[in-house]
């Protein structure tokens, strides 16, 4: 999965319009990135990448890039 596909998957998971996110987007600035979106993110990361996100890891995310780094 290339970077563009990962960003598209993230946008779909967070129910955002295509092209909303870049690796530099600060998560705190994304209104839709709320507690329910985080739950969807946990499910997606587990399903697609076998990555188990803990609450502490999620709290450490600052930018979209921090999430992209774990999408492998």
């Amino acid at each position: 999965m290339d970077m563009q596909e990962k960003i598209a998957l993230l946008e779909e998971t967070l129910e955002l319009d295509e092209g909303t996110l870049t690796a530099e987007t600060v998560l705190a600035d994304v209104d839709e990135y709320d507690s329910m979106a985080k739950l969807s993110l946990i499910v997606m990361m587990d399903d697609e990448f076998g990555v188990k996100l803990t609450g502490d890891v999620i709290k450490s995310f600052v930018t979209v890039g921090d999430i992209l780094n774990l999408m492998k």
Partner: peptide, 12 residues
Amino acid sequence: MDGTSVFSFTIT
């Protein structure tokens, strides 16, 4: 309740 941690526990 740290909802995110509890959720992560519940689905893994």
